[in-house]
Simulated scan of single mutants.
Amino acid sequence: MFDSALLLTAAFVAGALNAVAGGGSFLTLPALVFTGVPPVAANATGTVALLPGYAAGAWGFREDTAPPPGLSMPLVVLLSLIGGAAGAGLLLITPDVTFRRVVPWLLLAATALFAFGPQLRSRLAGGHPSTAKATVGLLAVAAYGGYFNGGLGILLLALFGLLGQTQLHAMNGLKNWVSALLTAIAVVIYAAGGVVQWPQALLMMVAATAGGYGGARVARRIPPQWLRAGIVVTGLVMAGIFFWRQ
């Protein structure tokens, strides 16, 4: 009962965080590991749980979504699927011991990306790289998302700014579409690899969806700087706990 309550709470808050500012993986991964799920399976299971939220967000922005300069929407879809599949495949061949050692560093990196996301987007915005560089950039970020997912939204927004996209709604819409696509293909590969803990995934999926809806409803009532500070602190605490457990 305690494990179920912990997973439900983590998924609900994670769904709300993703709807408002991102950072949901900072909660789902540690919660699953703390309840006894091996690290690789925990990462895969948490990704499955958050997929409906990405899909709902993508659908909500369907009228605003537009590809960045240098990329067409079909190419964005193709790169998202290829990158997500590559990252998921890499996760499947990563031993639990290795992934356990890598997790705290990934959490720290994702937390730093989240903390300095606005400055990063500001410094990168305004350029117009070639289609080749845009292709490599999106492919690399999609592969990262298929492997770990934490901090993915910040990376995508920074990339779109680098590519010269300036409309926030278009950027957020595309971020959700890319996240949903790469997560969907990653989930298929995780499932084929047998690393998804389906009872936990389905339980958390319901809570994450409810949290996403609730988070969207209250988003305007919470100061953004409070949310960002809370997510950064959560990421640092979770990384510290993983380092300590090693």
Rank of each mutant, 00 (worst) to 15 (best):
D96L: 12
V237Y: 14
G146P: 04
A19G: 12
F114G: 09
A110E: 12
L124V: 05
A21G: 01
G212C: 00
G214R: 07
G214T: 10
A143C: 14
V102E: 10
F61G: 10
T35E: 08
R221S: 14
N172W: 05
A86V: 15
L155Q: 03
G215T: 13
V76K: 07
G137N: 11
L78R: 08
G126Y: 13
A56K: 00
R217N: 05
A201F: 11
V195S: 03
F99L: 12
F116N: 04
W177N: 01
A132L: 05
P67N: 01
L181P: 13
L155V: 01
L90R: 01
A134Q: 04
L108R: 05
V48E: 01
Q225C: 11
S4M: 05
T183H: 10
T47N: 07
P69F: 11
F148M: 11
L138R: 03
P118H: 09
K175M: 05
Y147V: 10
Y147K: 13
G161Q: 14
G150V: 15
L152C: 02
G150C: 13
V195K: 00
Q225K: 14
G137C: 12
H128F: 14
A140E: 09
A85C: 03
I222P: 04
I82P: 02
A132H: 04
T234P: 01
P129N: 02
L139E: 01
A21H: 04
F160S: 13
L81H: 00
F12D: 07
A19R: 12
M171R: 11
V37R: 09
A219S: 12
G87N: 00
G46F: 06
G193H: 14
T65N: 07
T183G: 13
G87L: 00
L6C: 11
A112P: 02
L202S: 12
S179M: 05
N43R: 02
Q167G: 13
L227A: 09
L75I: 10
L174F: 06
V40R: 14
V141I: 15
A21N: 00
A5I: 15
P52G: 00
L120A: 14
A44M: 00
P67D: 08
V237C: 08
T9R: 01
A85N: 02
A216N: 13
I154R: 00
S72F: 04
F114R: 10
A88W: 05
